[in-house]
């Protein structure tokens, strides 16, 4: 799974521009056993139906989103610099002062006014979207437009980095982790026939999951995701929300969903039986595709299993490998247990 994740994180695909991610997934999945159907819908969602050992009691959808947060070209300046806007929730201070990937160009930089030329007040003011100006080396608008076009996607530049304590840092772990987890399920045997949905456009409002869940029409859904951990220096108690190393995060509620109570309880019971840690969020925060899936058609019983991540939506999101493995085990178990309901 870690190898899938590493490869998936290196691929660029922001909301509305997920083709490269989908191509990678399709290429892998077409060689996996017992694939009944694989199709791409009008928005770009990839829907995969895999045969299990048994005929399913319920229609179950497992979902994760393919898109990552990124940047989009909105304009050109006479001096050759390129104006960017954010795609998804990005704080401009994790973009300025670093290199970015510009398709068709290679490396560009989002610079900043040199600190020497800022007033003491300006030095303490957070950058805003106005500061998101890309430099590819072009000296004129015409120069820049030879290689870059309106609407082009621009991506974080970050290499897969191994940190201490079994942790890794990379862009796009949100939500290539979910995609990697689903690939691992798809490559092996599963207990019951299951739909696997790789969604588009989560980061701009849980959009791809709407038509995908309509199409699959599931009874139950498991969303595999990432969620904010704030177990930072000196953060005690509930402010941490969840902690790296604390295992899978199963939420009872976030800003988009009140999760199915029975599935919530069941997850903790099964984790205990598996002897793996499992935690919930101590703040009502965030949201994911469960928000649109659970209200699809006449309603879907939905749960989310997430890995805790520090610095989500940044070039270097930090996650712990043990949490990934335990989340996978729990998801695999829940896929089985749902059919006992």
């Amino acid at each position: 799974m870690l190898n899938y994740l590493k490869e998936l994180c290196a691929i660029n695909g922001t909301s509305g521009d997920e083709t490269a991610v989908r191509n990678y997934l399709q290429e892998k999945i077409q060689n996996f056993p017992h694939i009944l159907e694989m199709r791409t819908d009008a928005l770009g969602n990839l829907l995969v139906h895999k045969k299990g050992k048994h005929f399913p009691k319920h229609t179950v959808l497992i979902g994760a989103h393919m898109d990552e947060v990124g940047l989009i070209v909105t304009g050109f300046r006479p001096d050759g610099r390129i104006v960017l806007d954010t795609v998804g929730g990005i704080d401009p201070d994790v973009v300025i002062g670093r290199a970015v990937q510009v398709p068709n160009v290679g490396i560009g930089v989002v610079g900043s006014v040199p600190v020497h030329n800022l007033s003491p007040k300006q030095r303490d003011e957070k950058p805003t979207k106005k500061d998101l100006v890309l430099d590819i080396g072009a000296r004129s608008k015409e120069d820049a437009q030879k290689l870059v076009h309106y609407g082009d996607s621009v991506y974080y530049y970050s290499e897969w980095t191994e940190l201490g304590g079994n942790k890794v840092a990379s862009k796009a772990i949100d939500d290539r982790f979910g995609c990697a987890c689903m690939l691992k399920m798809l490559e092996g045997e599963i207990p019951f026939d299951t739909w696997f949905a790789f969604f588009v456009q989560e980061e701009i409002g849980l959009r791809g999951s709407k038509p995908a869940s309509f199409a699959v029409n599931p009874d139950f859904a498991i969303i595999l995701e990432t969620t904010t951990a704030a177990d930072l220096d000196g953060v005690k108690g509930d402010g941490a929300v969840c902690r790296l190393g604390g295992g899978a995060v199963v939420s009872f509620m976030d800003r988009a969903t009140i999760y199915d109570k029975e599935l919530f309880r069941m997850a903790f019971e099964e984790a205990e039986k598996l002897n793996i840690p499992c935690q919930t969020k101590t703040r009502i925060a965030g949201g994911n595709d469960a928000g649109s899936v659970h209200v699809s058609r006449d309603g879907v019983r939905t749960m989310a299993i997430s890995i805790p991540c520090r610095y989500l939506h940044s070039p270097f999101t930090v996650a712990q490998i043990s949490d990934m493995e335990q989340s996978y085990l729990l998801a695999e178990k829940m896929l089985f247990k749902i059919h006992e309901l």
Binding site: D93, V94, G97, R123, P127, F316
Partner: peptide
């Protein structure tokens, strides 16, 4: 030396 702390968040 003189550094711009505005660009610090999430730097590698």
């Amino acid at each position: 030396g003189g550094l711009d702390r505005r660009i610090f968040p999430d730097q590698h």
